[in-house]
């Protein structure tokens, strides 16, 4: 199973289970792992820089989101599974929950801020 077959066969059959062509290669996993490790290291370093307020929080949040997306996309195969027919369903089910959770709980925390 070479890479060219991977690309060709992805669109022709939709069996997610057993369709291992669509999944990333070991090399990709290693690259992602190294990137994740580096981001984590940067995060920790950033937290030791003595910054305060948005300068501290915003980059940390951005790095957290990037890590989240990389794990969900590559390790959990979301970005690969969503390329197959109807594969976006996984994406939508999980994404809807995620967005809902973020919005709802941000509103809750905001409501406590604005409370009398």
């Amino acid at each position: 199973m070479t890479d060219s077959i991977t690309l060709d066969s992805t669109d022709t059959h939709g069996h997610s289970d057993h369709d291992d062509h669509a999944h990333p290669t070991e090399k990709q996993y290693w690259i992602v792992f190294v990137i994740l490790a580096v981001i984590t290291a940067v995060e920790i370093a950033w937290s030791y820089m003595g910054l305060e307020g948005p300068a501290l929080v915003v980059p940390l949040i951005i790095m957290m989101v990037v890590k989240f997306l990389m794990i969900a996309g590559v390790f959990m195969h979301l970005s690969f599974d969503s390329k197959m027919p109807n594969g976006r369903t996984f994406y939508l089910c999980f994404g809807a929950a995620m967005v809902l959770a973020i919005l709802v709980f941000l509103v809750v925390l905001a409501a406590f801020e604005f409370q009398i």
Binding site: L100, L103, V104, A111, F114, Q115, I116
Partner: peptide, 18 residues
């Protein structure tokens, strides 16, 4: 239905903005 829960709490002191 997810964006209206606090209407059960209008008198609980959630503040005018909420």
């Amino acid at each position: 239905g997810w964006g209206v829960w606090a209407h059960h709490m209008f008198v609980s002191g959630i503040g005018p903005l909420s």
